[in-house]
C-alpha cells in the first residue's frame, strides 16, 4: 500500500541524505558510528531470509539495498579518508552493549516460533531497531544541536516509523486477521523515542 511505500521511501531517503552529507562535507562529526553499526546488525539479522523468501522483486531488492547502504555508511565512517579522522568517539559514548544484550534475550524469549533460530534473529532485529537510534540521539544532545543534514537524516528515520505505524492501522482494518504484536509494540516504542527530537526539529524549522 501507498503508506508503507512512503515509509520505505523515507527510510531509503534517510540513507542517501546521510551518505550525501558525509561525502559532501567530508566529515562524520556528529554522526554516531554505534547507531550505524547497530543498523548493519539489524538488517543482517532480519534479512537472512533473502536466501529463501522471495515475496517480490521489490522486497528482495530493498533488502539488498538496505544492507548495502548501511554497510557503505559504516565503511566510510571507519575507513573513509578524511572522514574517519572526523569521527568523535568521545561524544559517541552511549553504552550500546546495554541495548544489544537485552534485545538478544528478548529475541530468544519472545518470538513467533521458539523452535526457529531465524524467528529469534528476526525478533531480535525488530527489538534492536526500536532502540538503535539512541546512541545518535544521545550524541545530538551532547553536541547541543545537530547539523542541518544530520537532523534531516534523523527526521526521515522518524518519518519512516510514523508511516509504518499508520500502515499497520490500515492493514489491521483492511486485511482480515492481520495482527503483529511484536512489530507493533516495538514500532510504537521506536516512534516514542523520536518525539522529543521531532518537537525540537519542528521548532527550529519554524525559527528558520
Amino acid at each position: 500500500n501507498a503508506i508503507r511505500l512512503a515509509g520505505d521511501m523515507s527510510h531509503m531517503a534517510s540513507f542517501f541524505v546521510l551518505l550525501f552529507k558525509i561525502n559532501k562535507s567530508k566529515s562524520v562529526a556528529g554522526i554516531s558510528l554505534k547507531t550505524q553499526e547497530l543498523y548493519v546488525l539489524v538488517f543482517c539479522t532480519r534479512y537472512v531470509d533473502i536466501f529463501w523468501n522471495h515475496l517480490s522483486l521489490y522486497n528482495s531488492l530493498m533488502k539488498v539495498i538496505f544492507i548495502a547502504l548501511s554497510v557503505m555508511i559504516v565503511y566510510v565512517m571507519r575507513r573513509g579518508v578524511p572522514q574517519r579522522s572526523t569521527y568523535n568517539p568521545e561524544l559517541d559514548s552511549f553504552p550500546h552493549h546495554w541495548l544489544v544484550l537485552p534485545c538478544v534475550l528478548l529475541g530468544v524469549a519472545i518470538n513467533q516460533d521458539p523452535t526457529s533460530p531465524f524467528e529469534m534473529a528476526w525478533a531480535f532485529s525488530i527489538y534492536l531497531e526500536a532502540v538503535a537510534i539512541m546512541p545518535q540521539l544521545h550524541m545530538v544532545q551532547k553536541h547541543g544541536e545537530a547539523e542541518n543534514l544530520t537532523s534531516h537524516y534523523i527526521f526521515l528515520l522518524g518519518l519512516y516509523r510514523v508511516f509504518y505505524l499508520v500502515n499497520w492501522v490500515y492493514r489491521y482494518m483492511t486485511e482480515d486477521g492481520y495482527w503483529q504484536a511484536i512489530v507493533w509494540v516495538s514500532g510504537a516504542v521506536q516512534a516514542v523515542l523520536y518525539l522529543d527530537f521531532f518537537y525540537n526539529y519542528v521548532k527550529s524549522k519554524q525559527k528558520d
Binding site: R4, L55, S56, K63, F66, N167, Y178, V183
Partner: peptide, 10 residues
C-alpha cells in the same frame, strides 16, 4: 502463511 504476513514488510 499467516505467521509470515509480516515478512513482506521491511
Amino acid at each position: 502463511g499467516e505467521t509470515d504476513a509480516k515478512k513482506d514488510e521491511l
